[in-house]
Design a protein around this nucleic acid. Structure first.
Lengths: 344, 344
DNA sequence: CGGGGCGCAGAGAGCGCTCTCTGGCCCGGC
DNA sequence: GCCGGGCCAGAGAGCGCTCTCTGCGCCCCG
């Protein structure tokens, strides 16, 4: 089929009866080409099935037309699957008509993390998308210092990033807790996420916001987003506050863990204790009872990350370098239904 | 930090007091370098923070050190999230110490599918991994014809692939149905996957195998792996076989849909009808009751795909170009517990 | 002590593209 | 009618690397 080797730009030029420069101009959409020449070149490209060689182009332009999605997965609990898949779809969609390719880099250990830092700063990609970043990771800083545009998924703890996209974790958590308060709950505990991640801090703050606004306080225990830490957290909450009538878990898996403990103890959900989670993962719809949870627009977040990165690569000034997308509560049976006090 | 531009191989050679060729040999691990020269080169590389330019190398070697993972997601129902994430992790792990980068290509429409076919056959990647392939997709054939090594995740329907990795869908389905038979069930229906996908066919065959071995028959309805098709399938099964005492759904979402219908009808699970699914997704653990399901080793499958592809890229002969990995049943409450006939 | 062979190093070419610079052609103005 | 300017095309250089080929020096053997 392909005779020996793929056709080069030179071959196209020969066939079209023009010079290499003209072919290059046509390919790159330069206006300085006469209609006849353009026509001839396009026909030759078509006839030869010419595809430009990226390596050769990258060599001279110093752009690779590739961006990396870097996922640090040293602790797999952080890396919830629905989150991952949703974000990736959004990114892929956002990149689709930009001509940029997506390189997926999953660092599963510290070693790999270091190796990839070198790789990414080494002129191999035009930009980097980072998700599930851990507290104080210097990677985004190093990248920017080396002139590699970087967009973060999720706010980093501490530093103000050059550009990042996040869900409104604080607002979402606040909504969830306000929802519980609105249902008449008064002794509302929370199981937090890791406090070295901004997302954990934000969701705790949202919880605080709602309680404070209602003049309430409640017990706080710390988890790490995992189902198992949800179980431990629930046990601790019950020990500290036997009169608990609701719990807000900062992730769905933790909510699932909490619900398991409640069931084991024979505590009816939501009659005695209402439960709300965060993520609105597919699991939330299938728990017993179905879990009230905060939905975040994963695909939109991914798309927005791609948009920001592309703009930065093109050297455009960003009007809003930090984008926070709305979250909303999806109320289900784990909180709805009658509470003990109001019960029939 | 970086003064102007990154150091080139030439700069390293100058600093080490050797020629470019020697530096190249050191980098590529050629044995034909004296220890002293190698030492000097390595020091210079370290001092300069030299990172080879991939584009320049790719241009001359005609290898890109990049493989693509191509996901055709035109119908999103097929592309279950846990499947995706698990496989990717395996692939990433399998590629980790090969120096190959992973390009993620998600074709969300027919247009993109066609565009990427051109891209992938156009010397941009050294090999391609394909997952969730649809019946009769000519892409793998085209790729191989163009000399691009390809490894499939999941057997294609019809043609015998050059190399592919799959789970033992038939065996898994058979195990699940044997399990139901072993529990005393005799009127076992199935909701199949799409029959234009080999995975759908295999799981139906496994169901057949088990029934035939036990001298039974049962009603078959066709679904498309989606939750909604599981609901429809269950309704149809109940209509066709009111005495049904078990159902094997070829995917977890379909099993979930089926369970919803059973619950709506007030049919106790598993007392009257036992349910088994396929995938052992995280959802399976959280349904009510928890779902018996067939587990497939996703990460191992991904790793195996990577291994096969790397071997093919290196031109090694494959001893077993088609790898089928074992599946096993995870029995949970949706099938365990007492059946009607046996009382409690 | 001389010649042949081997092993390591360096010079040169070239991968396929872009980009700059020069040149040719045509048109308009004086 | 001649010259200047604008516009499009092509030639040339060079991006950073690999690979081949030549050459040099050393060692070993006769």
């Amino acid at each position: 089929m392909t005779s020996g080797r793929r056709p080069t730009l030179e071959a196209v030029a020969a066939r079209a009866g023009v010079g290499r420069g003209t072919v290059s101009r046509v390919i790159n959409g330069s206006p300085k080409v006469s209609p006849e020449a353009r026509e001839a070149v396009l026909r030759a490209i078509d006839e030869l099935g010419y595809v430009p060689n990226r390596a050769a182009r990258a060599l001279v332009t110093r752009r690779t037309d590739t961006v990396a999605l870097f996922v640090s997965e040293s602790e797999e609990r952080v890396f919830g699957e629905p989150y991952f898949a949703g974000i990736i779809r959004g990114i892929s969609a956002g990149l689709a008509d930009t001509g940029l390719q997506l390189l997926l880099v999953i660092a599963q250990s510290e070693d790999e993390h270091a190796r990839f830092e070198r790789y990414l700063t080494g002129q191999h990609v035009d930009g980097v998308l980072l998700i599930s970043l851990h507290g104080g990771d210097p990677l985004p800083l190093h990248l920017e210092e080396n002139g590699v545009p970087t967009v973060l998924g999720g706010k980093p703890v501490g530093v103000v990033p050059v550009s990042c996209v996040d869900a409104d974790n604080r607002g979402g958590a606040r909504q969830a807790v306000e929802h519980l308060i609105g249902l008449g709950r008064r002794r509302i505990g929370t199981i937090t996420g890791p406090q070295d991640m901004q997302v954990g801090v934000d969701r705790l703050n949202g919880y605080h916001d709602a309680l404070t606004a209602a003049g309430l306080t409640g017990p706080i225990v710390h988890g790490d987003f995992s189902e198992e830490s949800g179980e431990r957290g629930m046990l601790e909450l019950l020990a500290r506050e036997p009169e608990l009538d609701a719990v807000f878990a900062a992730s769905d898996p933790m909510a699932v863990g909490a619900m398991r403990v409640l069931k084991d103890r024979g505590i009816p959900i939501p009659r005695q204790v209402a439960v709300a989670g965060f993520d609105d993962s597919s699991t939330a719809r299938h728990t017993d009872p179905p879990l009230t949870s905060v939905h975040q627009p994963l695909e939109a977040m991914g798309r927005e990350m791609a948009r920001l990165l592309v703009a930065r690569i093109r050297g455009e000034e960003l009007e809003r370098p930090v984008v926070i997308l709305d979250t909303h509560l999806v109320a289900r049976e784990s909180s709805l239904g009658s509470a003990r006090s109001g019960g029939r």
